[in-house]
Every structure is written in structure tokens, then in C-alpha cells.
């Protein structure tokens, strides 16, 4: 690791100011940042340890939802009875990610800020536009089995690795952010991560020094929810394809549906066309198949990952069918 200074601010104002300086980085759980520093992909000159900040609250909101402080661990979110009962898709997504050790250490905010596991991004001897803008994309024309099929660009086909963010997208969560200026804003989770376009070095819409302080869940959605993840090992592996689904049916008709896909794009992917096609449709296998086809209609796969189109399509249809059978 390269040298860096280390500080433990005790106020959000001091932390955001310190991290907004050139070379400054927040550290909380550190499971991804330290890993990347060891392989010289991340090179902060100053680490701002935020673990002493008052960001561990986990309580109800006035609107009937939940506010999860950014420093709450992945384990503590998944173990919370309110999450397990009213937002099971989120608990399932968290428990299907990483290992128990990592979930104990990793925080809510850090989960959102983790970086792609594209192997070319991790290898400093390979060109990578995300790591070194303008150097090229090694995955295009390289091993692309685990890369994006939706929303990719000519400069980057990396996927976002978070399971939690996929569930939060289906739940329509909001992210609370503190700026170094003192301004506090909230943005929908779908506006946090971005598509690569011509600037894949920017994973999120956050400005330097901006700090995620909380995740805000709306009141529980009606219907049944599930997170389904297809991966290369039975445990402790990133998604090949995953889906978070919330299905609300009445009299065998779809009243509302929310879908988000993981492992297919640079951010959690919302197949809006599939959602629109389903609302008001019969809660039948045929409807779910048609919606699943619509979800991947615009896919542009690489030579190594064409299989993801069928995999995603089948995963969506199967998950919706199961949710309908559970009473949607």
C-alpha cells in the first residue's frame, strides 16, 4: 500500500471536509477499499475513518418506513426483525452476498460504494477506462462472461457487484447524502449509481467529499417479495444474474410489480417496460414470460455472455411465477 494519513473525525462536517481534499477517501468497514489499496487500484493519500460518526441509528420514519444509518453493518440490517418481516427482499439480498465475516464488517454505505469486481479493473497491468480513463477496455474483446448485457458503453462493460443495491432499487429506497457545504439531500437509489457512458471512472453521482449518511426505506410495499441470485458457487460468489421482485396481485390480476436486476449492468437495472406490461395483466405464466422477454429486449451481449439473456429471462419469469403462487 502507498502511504496515507489516517484521521478519526468525530463530526460529519469535519469528515466531509477532510474527504473532499484531493486524495481523500472515507473508510468505514474497509472490506473493498483496503482490498483495492493492496492491489494498488485505489491510491488514497488520506483515509478518513468515519466509524466514530453518529450514523448507526436504525429506526422508524414518520412516513412509516425505516431509516438505516450508513454505519449499520450488513449483518445487522439482515437480522433486523422489521426488515425480515416487512422487507424480506432486502434481507435475502444481503444474506446472499459475501461471507458472514464480511457482512459483519461491511456497512450499509460501503455496500453501495463498493466497486466492480471486473478482473481487468483489478489488474493494474491491464488497460481499464474505469481505473485509468482513456486507457481502453480490456473486457471488450476479452473474457466477458460476467459482464454487462444492458446499458454498457464502448468504454466499459463492467457490472455493479452489490446485491443490496438491487433489492433497494426494487424497494424504491432513498439515499441521504451530506455534502461538505453542510447541505443534506436525498436522492432515489436509481439516481445514485450511473451508467458508464464515456466516464466509467465515475461509479456514482456523488461529488468529492459527499457522504452517504442513511438509507431510507418507504413504507412496506403490498404483495410478496423475493431476491433470487444465480451464481457460480452455492455461497460466497457474486451474481451472474440476480433479480429482486415485488409482486402485488388481486383476483389473479397484477396490481403492481417492481423489478430490479443485478449482474447485468453498471447499476441495478430497472426493466421498466416489463413492469408496465404487467400492471393490469393476468397473473399468469404467459404474462410473466412476456414481461421477462420485455425486460431483456434491448440487451446487447458480448460474445462471452449471450447466455445471460436467457438466464435473466428465465429467472424473472420463474421468480414472478413463484411469487404469484405464494399469493403475490
Amino acid at each position: 500500500m502507498r502511504p496515507f494519513t489516517f484521521e478519526r473525525p468525530t463530526s460529519i462536517a469535519a469528515a466531509t471536509l477532510a474527504a473532499s481534499q484531493l486524495g481523500g477517501k472515507f473508510i468505514a468497514g474497509g472490506t473493498n477499499l483496503l482490498d483495492l489499496m493492496k492491489v494498488d487500484v485505489e491510491r488514497p493519500t488520506s483515509l478518513v475513518d468515519i466509524s466514530a460518526l453518529p450514523l448507526r441509528d436504525f429506526g422508524a420514519t414518520a412516513e412509516g418506513g425505516l431509516r438505516i444509518g450508513a454505519l449499520v453493518s450488513n449483518t445487522d440490517i439482515a437480522s433486523d426483525n422489521r426488515i425480515r418481516e416487512a422487507y424480506p427482499v432486502l434481507a435475502e439480498a444481503l444474506l446472499n452476498g459475501a461471507s458472514a465475516q464480511l457482512r459483519n464488517q461491511a456497512t450499509a454505505g460501503g455496500n453501495l460504494m463498493q466497486r466492480t469486481r471486473c478482473p481487468y479493473f483489478y489488474d493494474v497491468f491491464m488497460p481499464c477506462n474505469k481505473r485509468q480513463p482513456g486507457s481502453g477496455c480490456s473486457a471488450i474483446g476479452g473474457y466477458s462472461r460476467l459482464h454487462a448485457i444492458l446499458g454498457a458503453s464502448r468504454d466499459c462493460i463492467a457490472v455493479h457487484p452489490s446485491d443490496m443495491a438491487v433489492a433497494l432499487t426494487a424497494l424504491q429506497a432513498e439515499i441521504e447524502v451530506h455534502a461538505p457545504s453542510g447541505v443534506v439531500r436525498t436522492l432515489p437509489i436509481c439516481a445514485l449509481h450511473r451508467l458508464p457512458d464515456e466516464t466509467p471512472d465515475h461509479d456514482t453521482s456523488l461529488a468529492p467529499g459527499e457522504l452517504i449518511s442513511a438509507i431510507i426505506l418507504p413504507p412496506p410495499a403490498r404483495g410478496k417479495q423475493a431476491y433470487r441470485k444465480v451464481r457460480d458457487r452455492a455461497s460466497f460468489a457474486f451474481a451472474v444474474v440476480s433479480v429482486a421482485a415485488i409482486l402485488d396481485c388481486s383476483s389473479r390480476t397484477v396490481r403492481d410489480v417492481r423489478l430490479a436486476l443485478g449482474g447485468v449492468a453498471h447499476k441495478p437495472w430497472q426493466p421498466r417496460a416489463a413492469e408496465r406490461a404487467l400492471v393490469g395483466a393476468p397473473a399468469s405464466g404467459a404474462s410473466f414470460e412476456a414481461a421477462a422477454r420485455a425486460a431483456v429486449a434491448g440487451a446487447e451481449p458480448q460474445p462471452g455472455n449471450q447466455f445471460k439473456i436467457d438466464l435473466a429471462r428465465r429467472l424473472i419469469a420463474r421468480t414472478l411465477t413463484d411469487l404469484a403462487a405464494r399469493g403475490g
Binding site: 478519526r8 473508510i27 472490506t31 458472514a100 465475516q101 464480511l102 464488517q105
Partner: peptide
């Protein structure tokens, strides 16, 4: 793997300065 405040964690992915 070690126990930090009773919870299992990977000691390799934590700076000792983070364990104040």
C-alpha cells in the same frame, strides 16, 4: 478470522487503526 467485539471478521481487511 478473529472476533471483534464478539463478531467474526477478516483481520486482513481491517487496518489496526480502524479498531480503536
Amino acid at each position: 478470522t478473529v472476533l471483534v467485539n464478539g463478531a467474526r471478521m477478516n483481520a486482513c481487511l481491517s487496518l489496526v487503526a480502524m479498531r480503536h
